[in-house]
Amino acid sequence: MAKSATYSLKHYPAFSPQMKMADLIHANYKNLVVLSRLGIPLGFGEKTVEEVCKRYSVNVTLLLLICNVLLDSNVDPTEEQIDQCPVEQVVLYLQQSHRNYIQVALPNIQILLDRLVAACSETHGKALNRFFNEYRQEVESHLAHEDQIVFPYVMQLLGEPKKSRFTIRQYKDRHANIEIKLTDLKNIIIKYIPYDNTDYLRDDLLVQLFNFEDDLNRHTLIEEKLLVPSVLRLEKSILQS
């Protein structure tokens, strides 16, 4: 395991390997999902971040990098830090995030949306439903592209790299449409759905949409700041060998 000094973040040393894992969550509750996605269950008592990571074989630099990017999107990992993060764990984190979106986040949003649709007039409900289905399909097909093409590609680079027409450069900036539709959806719900009740249904739905958007944005950051540079390097080293 690397010495602790090497992974204090250059610009934003917000979290350290020596802090208590519990404090990492108190400091920013959004770190909860990071632990789940990296396979670390709660209940770690007074153990430090470093100790808990060791116990679950999670790379501590990776965990702290993700937490720091969640806290401040301006954080840029150094080359050294990128080198220290095992690519397969980065991929695992991203895959688990996808699973979380598909199995939890989107279905939860769907439940609230269905309730809102049921409370609207038929035409309005149909319109809203139609738009959300379109959005959901776009998200799912985007995630599926990564799950079926990008991640397997990265994993085979780690094993026995075969000739592939796909390179990581082709995978950049495919998120734009999803972001636009999500903003549209929020605006439609905030501004135009004629729903006069104040029973928190619409609020709950919006909070979920904002959270989902936030999570997706951070997800993109991890892909751009961690996955892409580290795969670029991997590709380069394979080409050279």
Binding site: A127, L128, R130, F131, N177, I180, D184, K191, Y192
Partner: peptide
């Protein structure tokens, strides 16, 4: 409106 996509504008 804050809505960019054509399908959003349709709604």
């Amino acid at each position: 409106t804050g809505i960019k996509s054509v399908s959003g504008l349709t709604v």
